[in-house]
């Protein structure tokens, strides 16, 4: 597995610090968010049901799988293994939930996010609009992280054009 560090020469020190902050922050948020869902799958299933996220026959399956998806993405993003795939999945989840929350707000649905707790009692952080803003903010963080990963992406994921404009087979480690 390729866990190559981004060479310090490719970006300035500040950007490097921002890069690592974003990677650790997003990774740890997703790991933390998965814990209560793993320990109380039935409680999370109730949240999924109230969210009207899935048809009734898919509620339990969603509640069983989603926490492990979050946990795995968080671990992979931090460790660097398949980190672009993990980041892409995180971005997809954040975009999906942002749209879902926005739709539910527009429908006037009373729901709790269930992001960091299975309790149906609401705190300030569970107000749907606050949840939406939080998810959009994390989505934007992920987009910027993708931008910072561009050198790594171009080196390992894209074919490099030689001077005669012939595409060279790109080499990458699995």
């Amino acid at each position: 597995m390729d866990r190559e560090r981004v060479p310090a020469g490719e970006m300035k020190n500040f950007k490097f610090a921002v890069y690592w902050f974003l990677r650790l922050f997003l990774g740890l948020v997703f790991i933390y968010a998965s814990i209560h869902k793993i320990t109380d799958p039935l409680g999370f299933a109730k949240i999924v049901h109230n969210f009207q996220l899935a048809p009734w026959y898919m509620v339990n399956f969603t509640a069983i799988v989603m926490p492990y998806l979050e946990l795995l993405c968080g671990i992979l993003l931090i460790s660097g293994i398949f980190r672009l795939g993990a980041l892409f999945t995180i971005e997809f989840l954040l975009a999906f939930f942002s749209v879902l929350i926005a739709v539910n707000i527009a429908r006037g649905l009373d729901f709790t996010c269930g992001c960091f707790s299975n309790s149906t009692e609401k705190t300030v952080l569970d107000i749907p609009a606050v949840t939406l803003l939080r998810d959009i903010a994390m989505f934007l963080m992920g987009l910027y992280l993708f931008k910072l990963e561009k050198p790594y992406f171009e080196k390992h994921y894209k074919p490099v054009l030689q001077q005669d404009n012939t595409a060279r087979d790109f080499t990458h480690t699995v």
Partner: peptide, 9 residues
């Protein structure tokens, strides 16, 4: 490759 990694995850 990113999509493949995501699918595997």
């Amino acid at each position: 490759k990113i999509l493949a990694e995501s699918a595997l995850i």
